[in-house]
Amino acid sequence: MNALALYGRYAMTSLRAQAQYPAATLMLTAGHCAATAIEILGVFALFDRFGPVGGWTFGEAALFYALVNITFSLADLLTRGFEVFGTDFVRTGAFDRVLLRPRAAALQLAGHEVRLSRLGRFVQAFAVLVLASHLVPIDWDAAAVATALWAVAGGVALFGGILILQATLAFWTVESLEIAHVLTYGGVQAAQYPLNIYAAWFRRLLTFGVPLACVTYYPALAILNRPDPLGAPGWLLPIAPVAGFAFLGLSLLAWRAGMARYASTGS
């Protein structure tokens, strides 16, 4: 069985395990939906009080919000194994079990758990996307849909890369790794607003360091058919999400270095 098919088997296995506790899964999903939906109210309150911010209407800002939240919800759904790698695998020794199986460790961790409750964020973000489409309004032609899907794919790769980096740190220290949340949850918060409202150094960080802007801001501009107020060339906007895949590639290189280290320390 090839890697992708095996990943599918892992995913089904995880879903069946969660189906053993249907009420709990449903409650968690609803709770996650409610908890994350609060944030769009914050964005709305800001625009309601001050009017357009940085040249953007609430409807347009809602698109940024929806795009990054859809992206993050999917990444969060898929990367649980890496998120808990330090605490549930390295510290407990369960990682040895992973290494005893004749498959890439990263594949096994990716398949560790598909966390259904994360669909809560997806549902509310999708609702916001529908709302934004009406408010702007957005013309969802084939190009716009393709750009959106491509942006989400690049974004899932980027967040996946961040989680893999967090997991990689666990090879060196099993201390608390909350610092990665600055990049994930903090990144989502930052990318909910259009990039041009931020200071220059922060914009550069979100473009070249942790390229969140490349998977949300630039493709969203392409979907809205608007030029970048900061002057990025128009051809760049739809291809920017490739940066997410580049980030994931670099993360996997770091992961391999960590694996080599684990084999020589055993802890």
């Binding site: 069985m1 098919a5 296995t13 069946r16 004749p102």
Partner: peptide
């Protein structure tokens, strides 16, 4: 796998080991 029936774990292992 803690939450899975024994037979399902066996099936999954068979796929893991090809």
């Amino acid at each position: 796998w803690w939450d899975l029936p024994v037979i399902d774990g066996f099936d999954l292992l068979a796929d893991i080991y090809r």
